[in-house]
Design a protein around this nucleic acid. Structure first.
Length: 569
RNA sequence: UGGGGCGUCGUCAAGCGGUAAGACACAGGGUUUUGAUCCCUGCAUUCAGAGGUUCGAAUCCUCUCGCCCCAGCCA
């Protein structure tokens, strides 16, 4: 293993390290990530991708193949295949020439099936689907043999050839492995390994009218590719005896070791493909790339850096225990990354006009402001300051509670990197009584944000010059569900019952400093004192910039405020 | 007695017979021109429970309890 940049160890890496030490597989390590192209990748897949590709990276000469498990053309599509390739690349992994498809092996797989028939270990069964289910028995009772179980090899060969030739209709026959109808493991009760599907395949076209099942295709694909460790999720644990049976009966030289780990569950979201598809198809969200979704394409649009996701996958570890990760873990990874690299900028989400009465009318000063307070290498930018500015509505309280130390009548605060201002007057709307604007005075000696006499102010506010600021749309995203485990609530409820109505709040007429002009969509900034925001790649146009909130900043005030004696606005 | 798997801090997770790492969360404190960041400090006498083996057990044995997965011609 390489010394630097390796992921934390886990039980799978322990097994592999032991194998390498014992020179099993001549010391080679080959893994694979085998998605079915029937949906978009999500953060749960990222766990598997980081595991498989991470192992390949960390072991000398290690490889990880990207293989599409495309054995069911009625559910799969090239659209998904392209998206998956894009997502794995984005996550930062490479497979070189090792891009494969189970469909690449259809001919070999067919030969293997023929071989199994010749071995007397597979037969064509002419029971229909319902009958097969009946014959299978139940969890507690054994199944019974199919009446077609004892067809001769020749008869099976003949029938199987005819299946391939398209001489039968869908459902008329299936090819089954001949194992044990009394096995306590239902997967071993003569599982179907080929079924007729008169559907054209996105890669092989109309060449085939029958396709291999997962259990048959998967292990053999692994074997054909020389995979050493076939890592999959827990629900396949019961399939391992079948995986091994197929490879043993066929006597292949490469017999990979299947190892199972627990799939990722994340609080306040859903990671099942079926449910994600439902959210998209029912238009509960705006598409696969909706920033509220845990899909990689959605997270990317939301502004999550791939490094944050990789780091998250390292932090959560790998084990066989069913678990549900707290959302805070992911958020911390995102903040950790963005805090270091996101340039700072000021944006007022909910503007309140402030007129600085003693500042000369018509005057504009260009202030030089650092792009990152802890990292001078990120440079500075010019931000115009003038007599009329906007501050955040939340940053002023006419009658502040004790612990509120932002702006209030008679109080002095700092405008970030600009001046100290003191509020003298509150202008209200005659009709509604709502605060319309503030009249303040500034101290010319505090330019840059510090006073020569060393007096302190308790708060620093972000601001945007009214005449110079740009109007932008901002989308505030929050968790998609109101409960940690939407599918695990009381009986009779559906996960869609718990959609968070406030998961998306659209703001318009937010005011942002104009330094963002010319910046690329997809760039993530820190809006000082607000959070991290990513310029939307889809809806940003030349005359309207749209930002997606990636994450808020940690907000200690939000914790204190409800406990403060009184908060009025 | 259908089969398979899993139970270590609120959430993840190391640990593999020698006396409970780490991360997130949480709670205090310090620094601070972001109530951010950063920095300190605290946070499992105990490993689902009960017995047993041992000088010594989260680790080995026995039983009990709890949770997850499996009856697609899906993957």
């Amino acid at each position: 293993m390489n010394e630097a940049n390796t992921s934390p160890t886990n039980f799978i890496r322990n097994i592999i390290s032991e194998d390498v030490k014992n020179n099993k597989n001549n010391g080679h390590v080959v893994t694979r990530f085998p998605p079915e192209p029937n949906g978009y990748l999500h953060i749960g897949h990222a766990k598997s991708i980081c595991l498989n590709f991470g192992i390949a990276n960390d072991y000398e000469g290690g490889k990880c193949h990207l293989r599409f498990d495309d054995t069911n053309p009625s559910k799969e599509d090239v659209e998904y295949m392209d998206a998956i390739i894009e997502d794995v690349k984005w996550l930062g992994f490479e497979w070189g020439n090792n891009l494969f498809h189970a469909s690449d092996y259809f001919e070999q797989l067919y030969d293997y099936a023929v071989q199994l028939i010749k071995l007397g270990k597979a037969y064509v069964c002419s029971l229909n689907a319902d009958e097969i289910r009946e014959y299978r028995g139940t969890l507690k009772e054994p199944g019974k043999n199919s009446p077609f179980r004892d067809r001769t090899v020749q008869e099976n060969l003949d029938l199987f050839q005819k299946m391939r030739n398209g001489e039968f209709e869908e459902g008329e026959h299936v090819l089954r492995a001949k194992i044990d109808m009394a096995s306590p493991n239902l997967n071993m009760r003569d599982p179907a390994i080929y079924r007729i599907k008169k559907v054209s395949h996105h890669r092989t076209g109309d060449k085939w009218c029958m396709y291999p099942m997962y259990d048959f295709a998967h292990g053999l694909s692994d074997s054909i590719e020389g995979i050493t460790h076939s890592i999959c999720t827990l629900e396949f644990e019961d399939h391992r005896p079948l995986y091994d049976w197929i490879l043993d009966e066929l006597g292949v030289t490469c017999h990979p070791q299947q190892i199972e780990f627990a799939r990722l569950n994340l609080q306040y979201t859903e990671l099942s493909k079926r449910k994600l598809i439902e959210l998209v198809k029912e238009k509960i969200v705006e598409g696969w790339d909706d920033p509220r979704l845990p899909t990689l394409i959605g997270l990317r649009r939301r502004g999550y850096p791939s490094s944050a996701i990789r780091n998250f996958c390292d932090r959560i570890g790998v084990s066989k225990k069913d678990s549900r990760i707290e959302f805070e873990m992911l958020e911390d990874c995102v903040r950790d990354e963005l805090n270091q690299h996101a340039p700072r900028v000021m944006c007022v989400l909910d503007p309140l006009k402030v007129i600085i009465t003693n500042y000369p009318e018509g005057k504009t000063e260009e202030l030089d402001i650092p792009n990152h307070p802890q990292n001078p290498d990120m440079g500075t930018r010019e931000v115009p300051f003038s007599r009329e500015i906007f501050i955040e509505k939340d940053d002023f309280l006419e009658d502040p509670p004790k612990k509120f130390f932002r702006l209030a009548p008679g109080r002095e605060v700092r405008l970030r990197s600009a001046y100290y201002i003191t509020c003298n007057e509150v202008i209200k709307d005659d009709q509604t009584g709502k605060i319309k604007e503030l009249r303040c005075t500034y101290d010319p000696l505090t330019k840059g944000g510090s006073s020569p006499d060393g007096r302190k102010v308790k708060a620093t506010l972000h601001w945007v010059s009214a005449a110079h600021g740009l109007d932008v749309d901002v989308r505030l995203y929050d968790r998609l569900f109101t409960v940690p485990n939407p599918s695990g609530e009381k009986e009779g409820t559906d996960f869609t019952d718990f959609i968070n109505p406030d998961s998306l709040v659209k703001l318009s007429a937010c005011k942002i400093e104009r330094s963002i002009i010319g910046k690329q969509p997809g760039t993530t900034f820190q809006f000082e004192r607000q959070g991290y925001f990513c310029m939307d790649t889809k809806d940003t146009t030349t005359d309207k910039v749209v930002f997606n909130r990636t994450a808020t900043l940690r907000d200690t005030w939000a914790k204190i405020a409800p406990k403060a004696d009184h908060v009025t606005r």
